[in-house]
Write a protein that binds this DNA or RNA. Structure first.
Lengths: 175, 175
DNA sequence: GTACCATTCAATCATCTGATTGATGGAAAG
DNA sequence: CTTTCCATCAATCAGATGATTGAATGGTAC
């Protein structure tokens, strides 16, 4: 799974080969097929691995008023420490267009993310930390879209400074 | 180019085959290779085709104060009328990670988009239509990221209503 | 010691895929 | 009419690719 995950991040679905996965593990192709009968099964495994990894970072922590900022900081740290994760998420998002099973999983993670953000925004609004003119769930889905655009898609703002500036602009808009 | 573009939107780079392109045109593979010696050349052609298509929608129009809203409406209309374009842009963005030439082109289009938005925001700020506490270019790059996340990546908000709500939330945040 | 089972591998298969070749037909040039 | 050039095609190639097979290895149970 680790090898497949790494190769998926490195070459995308376009360049993912069962032979390469087996080679990276240092094992015969037949051995790979012994555990994962088809390439599809391998991919399913990787999807679970990657999504679990992302899910585990969604748990909010810290003082209520600071949770939103903490969440952004957490995502930014994740992007710095494990950039492959966002590449894989992009690959999965794209593949979700043509693969119902993957689409369902991606949708599920998105929904979890958005719900968490919604709750977090409601909290912050009650404390008066943010403006609550917009409905929390609308704002949450917008923020999710922004963060995805910011971290999943490769863009101009790839250097840490640029991302920092963009996140600050986002915080300023919300609060 | 049209056939290759359509197939790229339909199957992604992962499933793009020269044979299928030729078949879609109703022509022999050798004929395709007669005009485009390699698959790479075909792809370059499609990139130019797609990016030109998007670029042509970036020209702002309408009364100064309404240009921002008009821009959002234009993107939304484009997403409705030509959803393939955004799929292709997503494919290109992803491939840009592994293909310097494509990355440069994508970066260029992004920069054009962001500059246009920056100018548009400055206009609106002078008119007092929007808050100008944030630097225009920071805000512009943030908006580009949001729009990309909203339209390029497949998400929960695929139905027109959801997108409408998200765009309205974005407008409310900015103004 | 023998039978059984899980694991691994070298070799191989069938198909896919980008690309090439040599031939054919037809239009333009002389 | 003949020559030349352009466009197209059927056929084919070489390498890649997902998957399978049958044999070998080593460990466990009886």
């Amino acid at each position: 799974m680790q090898a497949a995950y790494d190769l998926l991040a490195e070459r995308g679905f376009e360049g993912l080969r069962t032979r390469d996965i087996a080679a990276k593990v240092g094992v015969n192709i037949a051995t790979l097929h012994y555990y994962y009968p088809t390439k599809e099964k391998v991919i399913r495994g990787v999807v679970g691995y990657a999504m679990g990894r992302f899910r585990s970072t969604l748990q909010p922590a810290g003082s209520p008023g600071e949770q939103l900022r903490a969440h952004f900081a957490g995502i930014r740290r994740l992007a710095r420490d494990e950039p492959e994760l966002f590449v894989v998420m992009g690959e999965l998002a794209m593949r979700g267009r043509r693969d119902r099973a993957i689409a369902a999983i991606v949708r599920d993670v998105d929904a979890t993310w958005q719900k968490m953000l919604t709750a977090l925004l409601r909290h912050a609004a009650k404390e008066g930390a943010i403006d609550n003119s917009a409905k929390a769930d609308d704002l949450a889905s917008l923020i999710v879209a922004t963060l995805k655009g910011l971290f999943i898609l490769p863009g101009d703002g790839r250097d840490a400074k640029e991302v920092d500036r963009q996140l600050r602009a986002l915080e300023r808009l919300i609060t």
